[in-house]
Structures are given as structure tokens and as C-alpha cells.
Amino acid sequence: MVLNMIEQTDEEENITMKEWLKRERISYRFLASEMNQSPGGICRKVNGQVPWSLEDLVWLRENYGLSYDFVIDTTPHQLPMEVV
């Protein structure tokens, strides 16, 4: 299990899930292997072509601390606070 929680900087930051993955250097292939899914499926979900399942959202929350609205929203917004 990977625990790479989000750290919010002092500066307000607007970012999408796609940009966050790039910034964290997490490839679709790596995320797919962690989530037991196909890289193509992850790509389609990140790009909004296929909806994230509730199980996906729970997994991303538990493993990366990502809020549901952050994952499903394609518009830039503020990163969620780190979960303690």
C-alpha cells in the first residue's frame, strides 16, 4: 500500500487530478497496477470519459488522501488538506 499523502503549500494551488498525477510522478500504469485496473481504464477515468466508481474513490481517499470531489472534478481547484 502506498501512502503518499498530499501536502498543501502555503501558496494557494489550483490543480486537477491529471496535473496532480503528473506532479507526483505517478503514471497511469503505476496507479492502475496499484488499483488492480488497466492503464487505459485509469486514463479514461482521469480524462472524464468514464466515471470513477465508489470503490475507486474510497481507495484513492484511503491510499492518497484524495477527496472525492478532487478526483472527479476536471476543473482546477485547491488541494485538500493532508489527512493526519
Score class of each variant (00 low, 15 high):
residue 27 S to Y: 00
residue 28 Y to M: 07
residue 58 V to A: 10
residue 28 Y to G: 04
residue 74 T to H: 09
residue 44 R to P: 01
residue 10 D to I: 10
residue 50 V to F: 06
residue 76 P to K: 05
residue 72 I to S: 01
residue 7 E to R: 14
residue 24 E to H: 09
residue 6 I to R: 05
residue 58 V to T: 12
residue 83 V to G: 05
residue 65 G to F: 07
residue 35 M to K: 03
residue 34 E to K: 09
residue 30 F to K: 15
residue 10 D to S: 13
residue 35 M to Q: 05
residue 82 E to R: 15
residue 6 I to G: 01
residue 11 E to V: 13
residue 57 L to M: 10
residue 36 N to R: 11
residue 65 G to Y: 09
residue 23 R to W: 03
residue 1 M to L: 11
residue 14 N to L: 15
residue 19 E to G: 04
residue 28 Y to L: 03
residue 72 I to D: 02
residue 72 I to T: 07
residue 64 Y to G: 02
residue 65 G to T: 08
residue 18 K to R: 07
residue 73 D to R: 06
residue 32 A to Y: 06
residue 58 V to F: 11
residue 54 L to N: 14
residue 55 E to Q: 10
residue 78 Q to P: 00
residue 53 S to K: 10
residue 8 Q to C: 05
residue 38 S to H: 14
residue 26 I to S: 03
residue 71 V to G: 00
residue 8 Q to P: 00
residue 71 V to A: 03
residue 25 R to K: 13
residue 32 A to R: 01
residue 19 E to V: 00
residue 15 I to D: 02
residue 9 T to W: 10
residue 11 E to S: 11
residue 1 M to I: 11
residue 26 I to M: 08
residue 83 V to C: 10
residue 32 A to M: 07
residue 54 L to W: 12
residue 26 I to P: 03
residue 13 E to N: 10
residue 2 V to Q: 08
residue 3 L to W: 08
residue 16 T to A: 03
residue 61 R to T: 09
residue 30 F to M: 12
residue 41 G to W: 05
residue 15 I to H: 04
residue 47 N to D: 14
residue 30 F to W: 11
residue 58 V to Y: 12
residue 21 L to S: 06
residue 53 S to Y: 08
residue 17 M to Q: 03
residue 49 Q to M: 13
residue 35 M to V: 03
residue 43 C to G: 06
residue 15 I to R: 10
residue 52 W to R: 01
residue 67 S to M: 03
residue 66 L to C: 06
residue 28 Y to N: 14
residue 74 T to N: 11
residue 70 F to W: 00
residue 21 L to C: 07
residue 17 M to L: 09
residue 54 L to V: 15
residue 84 V to H: 14
residue 44 R to W: 12
residue 27 S to H: 01
residue 36 N to E: 14
residue 70 F to M: 02
residue 17 M to N: 04
residue 5 M to N: 07
residue 50 V to D: 08
residue 69 D to G: 01
residue 19 E to D: 07
residue 67 S to T: 15
residue 30 F to C: 09
residue 38 S to P: 04
residue 64 Y to N: 02
residue 60 L to R: 00
residue 79 L to R: 04
